[in-house]
Simulated scan of single mutants.
Amino acid sequence: MKIANRVISSKSKPFIIAELSGNHAQNFELAKQMVSAAASAGVDAIKLQTYTADSMTLNIDSDNFRIMEDDSLWHGQHLHELYQQASTPYEWHKPLFDFASELGLIAFSSPFDEAAVDFLESLNVPAYKIASFELTDIPLIQKVAKTGKPLIMSTGMASVSEIEEAVAAAKDVGAEDIVLLKCTSTYPASPENTNLMTIPDMANKFGCAVGLSDHTLGIGVAVASVALGACVIEKHFVLDRNAGGVDAAFSLEPDEFKLLVDSAGVAHQAMGDVVYGGTAAEEKSKYYRRSIFARKDIQPGERFTRENVQIVRPAIGLQPKHFNRVLSASARNALKAGDAIFDKDLSE
Rank of each mutant, 00 (worst) to 15 (best):
M197W: 12
N195K: 11
A169E: 04
T194A: 13
A175N: 05
A169Q: 00
S190I: 06
K182Y: 14
V173L: 08
T198H: 15
V167F: 01
L180G: 03
A189N: 05
L180V: 07
D177F: 08
D172P: 08
A170V: 00
E164Q: 15
I199A: 04
I199H: 06
A158S: 11
S190M: 09
I178W: 01
A170L: 08
M157S: 14
K182R: 15
E162S: 13
M197Y: 15
T186Y: 06
Y187F: 02
M197C: 13
I178C: 06
I178S: 00
D177E: 14
E176L: 11
S159T: 14
E176R: 13
D177S: 13
T194Y: 09
P200C: 11
Y187C: 00
K171S: 09
A170H: 01
I152F: 08
E162N: 10
L180E: 01
A158T: 06
G174P: 06
V173S: 02
S159R: 00
S161M: 11
I199Q: 05
E165W: 10
K171T: 08
K182D: 15
S185D: 08
T186W: 04
V179G: 07
M157F: 12
D172Q: 13
P191A: 07
K182V: 12
G174Q: 08
A158F: 06
I163K: 10
T186M: 10
S159Y: 12
A166V: 02
E192R: 03
L196F: 02
I152S: 11
A175D: 13
I152K: 10
P188C: 07
E192I: 09
P188Y: 05
E165T: 15
L151D: 07
S190Y: 10
T184A: 09
G174Y: 03
T155Q: 03
I152C: 11
M197L: 14
K171H: 10
V179C: 12
Y187E: 00
E162W: 01
S154D: 10
Y187R: 05
T186G: 03
P188K: 08
S161H: 12
K171P: 10
E164M: 14
V167M: 05
A170N: 04
E164I: 10
I199L: 09
V160W: 14
S159P: 07
S154G: 13
K171A: 09
M197T: 12
G156W: 05
I178L: 02
L181E: 02
N195A: 15
M153R: 04
S154H: 07
K182H: 14
A168Q: 15
I178G: 03
L180D: 04
C183E: 05
A175R: 03
E165Y: 08
A170P: 01
T198K: 12
I199T: 03
S190P: 10
A175Q: 01
M153Q: 05
